[in-house]
């Protein structure tokens, strides 16, 4: 198994905290349109695919969902309560690193390796909570000696990672497994990670009223000075043109995010 550089690119989109079910997650269409819009005349064959895990989360939350429905007597109250449970439950699954989180990681890893098997260069684009899963799976794959030879990107199941509105900088998502990125060892190929964030995005800053996050670094603290690490990590502060929660969902069609993705997948 190895990646063929001339093959079509696969951009695998990982959604974040969501309500609804798998069928509601269609963000790959937005990423597809964004890339086509920003490619210009660069010749590139690619497809955007979606990795969906909302049904895994929903299944894990089914018991609580029934309980909430009983407690919230009115239809409207029941609806609101279920939406809240859907959102909070997604976060709790990732935060507590539950068996549900493990199942989601396994499923994402399997999806990536299916793309690797056909030899297509794969790039991950992960939003919000999805970036936690994407980050963990990339690092897990790097720990597997079968992949990520630093001398040849053809052995890399993931060629690059793009995260949008990621909470990876928040203390609540720090854990021993995320203390540092996996070092690639000696060699001259570099794994690229672009992290786009907006200063008023509350999921990035943890400031729920959207107060501006100062500074420049959210995930660049993972970057070490050692060339043995093999990562190029860039925080990109994008002005989404929106504020607060509206900023958190504005990355999908932002031209500068598109420029960054195009630059990554064409190289």
């Amino acid at each position: 198994m190895s990646v063929v550089p001339g093959n079509p690119r696969t951009v695998l989109v990982v959604h974040g905290v969501q309500t609804g079910n798998n069928d509601d997650q269609q963000q790959q269409e937005q990423i597809d349109a964004l890339i086509r819009n920003r490619l210009g005349s660069i010749p590139l064959e690619f497809q955007a695919e979606m990795f969906r895990y909302e049904d895994i989360n929903d299944e894990a939350q089914a018991l609580y969902s029934r309980l909430v429905s009983l407690l919230a007597a009115t239809p409207a109250g029941s609806y609101v309560a279920r939406q809240a449970l859907d959102l909070v439950g997604d976060v709790v699954s990732a935060y507590l690193d539950t068996s549900t989180a493990s199942e989601i990681r396994d499923s994402l890893r399997e999806h990536i390796l299916d793309i690797f098997d056909i030899g297509n260069p794969c790039y991950l684009v992960a939003h919000s909570l999805g970036s936690i899963y994407a980050f963990d799976v990339v690092n897990d794959l790097m720990r597997d000696r079968a992949f990520f030879d630093r001398q040849s990107r053809r052995s890399w199941p993931v060629q690059g990672l793009v995260t949008l509105g990621s909470p990876l900088g928040l203390e609540m998502f720090q854990s021993p497994r995320r203390a540092q990125v996996t070092s690639l060892g000696a060699g001259d190929k570099w794994f690229r990670w672009l992290n786009f964030w907006d200063r008023t995005d509350p999921v990035v800053s943890g400031k729920i009223f959207g107060a501006g996050q100062p500074g420049f670094d959210i995930v660049e603290h993972y970057q070490s000075d050692s060339p043995m690490q093999g990562w190029v990590i860039r925080d990109r502060v994008v002005d989404t043109g929106k504020v607060w929660l509206l900023a958190h969902v504005a990355y999908w069609d932002h031209p500068m995010v598109g420029d960054g993705i195009v630059d990554m997948i064409t190289n």
């Binding site: 002005d239 043109g241 031209p255």
Partner: peptide, 16 residues
């Protein structure tokens, strides 16, 4: 100006 904010319309890539 926008009530909800708006993703900025930036120039397209220059043609090759």
């Amino acid at each position: 100006w926008s009530l909800f904010g708006a993703v900025p319309e930036l120039p397209p890539p220059p043609p090759c």
